[in-house]
Computed example of a mutant assay.
Amino acid sequence: MKHINLNAFSDVSKRTRVIAGSAAAILAAGTIGAVSASAAAPAAPAAGTVPASVRADAAPRDLVSTTHLDIDAATRAARAALDAAEREGQRVSVAVVDRNGNTLVTLRGDGAGPQSYESAEQKAFTAVSWNAPTSELVERLKSAPNLKDIPGTLFLAGGAPVAVKGAPVAGIGVAGAPSGDLDEKFARAGVTALSR
């Protein structure tokens, strides 16, 4: 450690010398503390190993398997829905979500309105959540109006579920056409593309 000779600063006030000396002491203490702390830290486990205290192997009976669309299938479905809309001159956005409602693919068609992007995702989320076309869910609102308060949902026609053996695996949502019936028609074209 380097020492500071405060006497060399004879023309400097005593107060300045005390402050300079205090700063040097604080700096030295910090350095010694940092060295001591790093010396006391436990060694990190070797790369690729997990300490036994945090590793747990779950029993197979405690696990659940789910089925999801892969990205290629989700893209194919989204493209089929967008193509169906474009053939009819409609400017829409298309979203495909997985079983958990996470967005896999979103396509915003040329000229689609800014609101259509989020609406398509919400319709897809709603369809997969209830495993039903959103046009049917609109009818359910008559008997359970609070359904519309669930975050992330949109109870307008235009969402269609993708199911395997009756269980939902994805949802396709379309928004931007002048009617929900058209949006849903295009969403169903996406579902149909997956069955080929």
Score class of each variant (00 low, 15 high):
Lys165Ala: 14
Leu104Ala: 11
Gln90Met: 14
Ser38Trp: 14
Ile71Gly: 07
Ser38Phe: 05
Ser116Phe: 03
Thr67Val: 13
Leu69Met: 11
Gly180Tyr: 00
Asn7Met: 12
Glu139Cys: 00
Lys2Ile: 05
Arg87Ile: 08
Pro151Trp: 06
Leu27Val: 15
Ala177Pro: 02
Ser53Ile: 06
Pro42Thr: 09
Ile19Arg: 14
Ala39Cys: 08
Arg140Leu: 00
Ala127Tyr: 07
Val174Gln: 04
Thr16Pro: 01
Asn131Lys: 04
Asp83Val: 10
Ala24Lys: 10
Ser65Met: 14
Ala20Gln: 04
Val54Lys: 08
Ala160Asp: 09
Arg76Glu: 06
Ala47Val: 15
Pro114Arg: 07
Leu6Ala: 15
Phe9Ser: 03
Asp149Asn: 11
Glu139Pro: 00
Glu136Leu: 00
Val12Ala: 15
Ala84His: 12
Gly173Arg: 04
Ile19Trp: 12
Val96Tyr: 04
Pro168Lys: 06
Arg61Ser: 12
Thr31Leu: 12
Ala8Tyr: 11
Pro42Met: 14
Ala29Leu: 13
Ala74Gln: 13
Asp11Tyr: 09
Ala95Lys: 15
Ala73His: 05
Pro151Ser: 12
Val92Gly: 00
Val54Trp: 01
Ser129Ala: 15
Ala124Trp: 09
Ala167Leu: 03
Tyr117His: 04
Gly173Ala: 12
Arg76Val: 07
Ser13Ala: 14
Ile32Lys: 13
Lys2Asp: 07
Pro168Ile: 11
Ala167Phe: 02
Gly48Pro: 07
Phe186Gly: 01
Ala52Val: 02
Gln90Cys: 05
Glu121Ala: 12
Val128Ser: 09
Ser53Met: 06
Lys148Gln: 14
Leu141Pro: 08
Ala34Gly: 13
Ser179Gln: 03
Glu88Leu: 13
Glu184Phe: 03
Leu156Ile: 03
Ala20Cys: 15
Asn7Ala: 11
Gln90Gly: 04
Pro60His: 13
Ala163Ile: 00
Ala52Tyr: 08
Ile71Ala: 13
Ser129Glu: 01
Ala37Pro: 02
